[in-house]
Design a protein around this nucleic acid. Sequence first.
DNA 1: AATCAAGGTCAACATGCCTGTCCCATCTTC
DNA 2: GAAGATGGGACAGGCATGTTGACCTTGATT
Lengths: 168, 168
Amino acid sequence: MPVPSSPPASALFLREDEVRHGVELLFFGYTRLTKSIDDQLAKQGLGRAHHRALYFIARNPDLTVSQLLRALAITKQSLGRVLTELQRRGLIETRSGETDRRQKLLRLTPPGASLEAELFDALRTRLSQAYRRAGQDSVTGFWRVLEGLVPDADRTLLAELGNERRPG
Amino acid sequence: MPVPSSPPASALFLREDEVRHGVELLFFGYTRLTKSIDDQLAKQGLGRAHHRALYFIARNPDLTVSQLLRALAITKQSLGRVLTELQRRGLIETRSGETDRRQKLLRLTPPGASLEAELFDALRTRLSQAYRRAGQDSVTGFWRVLEGLVPDADRTLLAELGNERRPG
DNA sequence: AATCAAGGTCAACATGCCTGTCCCATCTTC
DNA sequence: GAAGATGGGACAGGCATGTTGACCTTGATT
C-alpha cells in the first residue's frame, strides 16, 4: 500500500471532500425540492406527510398499509393519522384485500389523483429541468449512486414500488 | 470506463417514470442516509437539527449565523435554540467578526469537532460505498443532476460553503 | 441623525414524529 | 379447533422541530 503522501493517486485523500460534497448536494437537493411544493400543500391544508402518502399510493395503486409503512419508515400511528385524514377528505379510498382480507388496499380517488398530479407537476418541472441540464449520462449516474445508497432491505421495496407493472 | 451508448435524450426526459424514479431515489437516499446516524445522535441527546448545524460549521469554520440560516432555510428562532444548546454543551464556540463586529463567527470546539467527525464517519462509510459501487463517472453525474436541482439562489451559497478553501 | 443589517429573545403555536399499550379481525400452522 | 402470527387500528402522552410576530441591542452605512 503506497503511503498517503503521493499526491496524484489521492483517492483516499480526496474522499472526504467528495463525500462532503455529496452530503451537501443531497441535503440541498432534497430539501429544496421538498420545499418547492409546500405552498401548494399549505393551500390545501395538508402537510408533507400527506403528500408522501399520496405520492406512493399514486405510484402504486392498491398499495397495502404495511408496504406504505415500510416505504415511509414511520410508525403505524403517524401513518394512521395521515391516512384517516386523506380518507376523510375523499382523496383516497380503501378496500380489503382479495387473497388476504386483513389487508387494506389503498387507492387514490379521482380528486386525490388530480391533486397528486398537480403536486407532481411541480416536482417534474424541477427535476426534469435538472435532468436536461445534466444530460442523460449524468442521470444514469445519479440513479446508480442513489441506488447504491439505499440499504438492501429497502432496495427490494424500492424495486417493488417503482417497477411493479402488472400485466393488464 | 466504457459508457453505454445513450438513446436520444429528449424523449427520455419527458417520461413521467424517469422523474418518479428520481423522486423516489432522492427520498430513499436522503431519508435512509439521515436515519443512519439517528442512534448515534440519540445517544448524545441531540437531534438532526443539531447535526445539520454541526455539519455546516465543521465544513466551514467561522461561518456566520446568517450564512447558516440561509443554508438550513429555517427561521432564526429554530436555529437559535439549536445553537444555544450546542454552545451550552461546549460543542461550538463563537467570536465576533473582524470586519463586521455584529457578525458572530461559529466554530467547533475540539469536542465538537470530535463528535462531528464521528458522525461524519458513518455518512462517509455509506456514501463512499455507494460511490465505489457506482463508479467515478456515475458520481460525476450524481453531482451534476443535483447541482442542477438546487435553485440558483442556493447554488451560490452551496459553492461558497463547499469550496471556500483558505490558504494555510 | 437616520436607517439598515446582524443577531438575540420572548411568547404562542402547529406538525409530525415517537413510545407504549391494548384491541380486533383474519390467516396459518399444528 | 386452538394457538400464534400478522395486518390494521386506537388510545395517551411526549418530544423535536418548525412557524409567526413582536421587540431589542449593537454596529455599519449614508
